[in-house]
Design a protein around this nucleic acid. Structure first.
Lengths: 145, 145
DNA sequence: TCAACAGTTTAGAATTATTATAATGTAGAT
DNA sequence: ATCTACATTATAATAATTCTAAACTGTTGA
């Protein structure tokens, strides 16, 4: 979703009614320069900090999934216990910092194209994504036990 | 864990008491030619099909996590709603069939080495893993809506 | 303009996956 | 055989997410 655009019009174009909840969430998620990674919990916290009125948890889930279905958010799986979403919906790679649980987007220059030599009959490749897990050097010394 | 080995001895070597629950789970998980992907749910179902006595759900979780901590199982994140485990604990790549939710291991010949050009200061790369999502061709045609 | 309708929001209940608890059971050492 | 620390168990607790059904609100068109 374009930055600084009229979210009301944009939502209408997508066939989503521009309710105040949705417009607010658009502003929080898409009025940004850089791509943004968040969990539902992060988002709920952000909303309650920025608004007087609360948005119901069910609505946050509904809206995030609506935006995801329309292709404006993308779910990223790193841990099974947390669900991350990303405003960068292109197929792209990630670094994941195991010390801080921080997720960092890569751009095309960071990782060379991945050459897949296997193919599965009748199946088509939908996406190819690389996850690079990093951590501070000393933290990962083998423990003597 | 080696195939067809004496799991009682093997467990003892790891500092895990060879209880009948653990031995049974070893047999189910590690007495295989091919690497094996499963969810806790799959495993519970397998156990109840193969044994007269049940193993408590808590024990299944405890034991899977014990094996994981000892490095004999590896957790794979694909969906946030399911936690997959893999008896192949090496760093390796996967195909994920979105139609069947099936996970398929790659070997070194399936995907060329990934060339990472970015590096993060003070951080060391722990793993580089590729996830290739596939689905049947027609299922993924763009819907006209 | 406004009624009507369909899509939305909401609080709270339900569901699902996982972890914690505390009592009971058991392997291994003495 | 007995003891003790570790394991198992049923159940409760927690957490994340989805469902439900009632109330609410954009939008359409008379």
């Amino acid at each position: 979703m374009a930055k600084n655009c009229n979210f009301i019009e944009k939502l209408r174009e997508l066939g989503l009614r521009p309710t105040k909840q949705r417009v607010k969430m658009c502003e929080l998620l898409f009025n940004r320069e850089k791509t943004f990674h968040f969990t539902i919990n992060d988002l709920v916290k952000m909303i309650s900090e920025e608004m007087n009125e609360k948005i119901s948890l069910a609505t946050v889930y509904n809206t995030v999934h609506a935006f995801e279905k329309k292709g404006y958010l993308k779910e990223i799986s790193i841990n099974s216990d947390k669900s991350y979403f990303d405003t960068n919906t292109s197929v792209h790679h990630h670094f994941y910092d195991e010390d801080t649980n921080e997720l960092i987007d890569c751009d095309e220059n960071d990782i060379d194209p991945v050459n897949i030599k296997k193919n599965i009959t009748g199946k088509k490749i939908n996406s190819v994504e690389v996850l690079v897990k990093v951590a501070s050097d000393n933290q990962n010394q083998k423990k003597f036990n």
